[in-house]
C-alpha cells in the first residue's frame, strides 16, 4: 500500500453562480467516453447497441438516448461518438463497454474535460455573445450538439433541455471558459 491517497477533485471545484434568469454551474457526476467506430463495423455496432440499451447511432451533430435515458451519445465526427452518462467511478470505460456490449474502441475522457451548465430562461442571451453557432430555439434544438470555438477556446455545446446547455472545454481551459460565460452574463443581464 502506498502511504498517500489521491483525492478526486472536480475541474471547477463545484462552481455555481446565480444571475438574474441564468444559472452557471459545474456539471458533476457525469462521465465521458469516446467510442471510435471502425468503418466496416458501423452496422454491427449499431445493432448491438440497439439490442443492449436501445441506442441508435446519431446523425452528425445530433444525439440519441438509451431507453432508460441514462446514456447519451453525441456524434461530432463521422467515425466516432461520445458517450455522456451518469457515472462517478474510476472505470467509466469498462462500465460503458459492458453496458453497450459493442465491438468498438473505448477511451475514457471524463477527467480531461471541464463541464459547465448554463441554464435558465435567459441562457441563450448569455451564450449568443460568445458562441458563433446559431442557438435560436428552432435551429439548435434540444438534443443538438456541436463542436465549435468560443472566446478562442475549443468547446462542445450540447442542449440538454429547453433552456439548458452543457458546455465542455478541455479541463485546463475550464476556469477561462467559466470567466468568459460570467463576463457575458454580466454584460447582458
Amino acid at each position: 500500500m502506498s502511504d498517500y491517497e489521491l483525492v478526486v477533485e472536480s475541474a471547477l471545484d463545484g462552481a455555481e453562480h446565480e444571475f438574474k434568469g441564468v444559472t452557471v454551474s459545474e456539471v458533476i457526476g457525469k462521465s465521458l467516453v469516446m467510442i471510435a467506430l471502425p468503418r466496416p463495423k458501423f452496422k454491427e455496432i449499431e445493432s448491438s447497441m440497439i439490442k443492449s440499451c436501445g441506442l441508435a447511432l446519431p446523425e452528425m451533430e445530433r444525439s440519441t438516448q438509451s431507453k432508460d435515458s441514462s446514456i447519451v451519445l453525441w456524434r461530432l465526427q463521422k467515425n466516432q461518438v461520445l458517450a455522456y452518462f451518469s457515472y462517478e467511478g474510476n472505470d467509466a470505460e469498462v462500465n460503458i463497454a459492458n453496458r453497450l456490449n459493442s465491438p468498438a474502441y473505448y477511451t475514457d475522457q471524463s477527467d480531461t474535460w471541464a463541464m459547465i451548465r448554463v441554464s435558465g430562461p435567459r441562457s441563450r442571451d448569455v451564450l449568443e455573445r460568445i458562441c458563433p453557432i446559431d442557438l435560436s430555439k428552432n435551429v439548435f434544438s434540444v438534443g443538438n450538439v456541436s463542436r465549435t470555438i468560443m472566446e478562442h477556446i475549443g468547446t462542445i455545446i450540447y442542449r440538454d433541455d429547453e433552456d439548458s446547455y452543457v458546455l465542455l472545454t478541455m479541463r485546463s481551459f475550464g476556469i477561462s471558459m467559466l470567466h468568459a460565460i460570467e463576463v457575458s452574463a454580466k454584460n447582458v443581464l
Binding site: 452528425m60 451533430e61 463521422k78 458563433p132 453557432i133 456541436s146 470555438i149
Partner: peptide, 10 residues
C-alpha cells in the same frame, strides 16, 4: 457539407 454554415474562425 455535413454541418451547415460555420464561422471561418473554426
Amino acid at each position: 457539407p455535413l454541418l451547415g454554415p460555420r464561422d471561418s474562425e473554426e
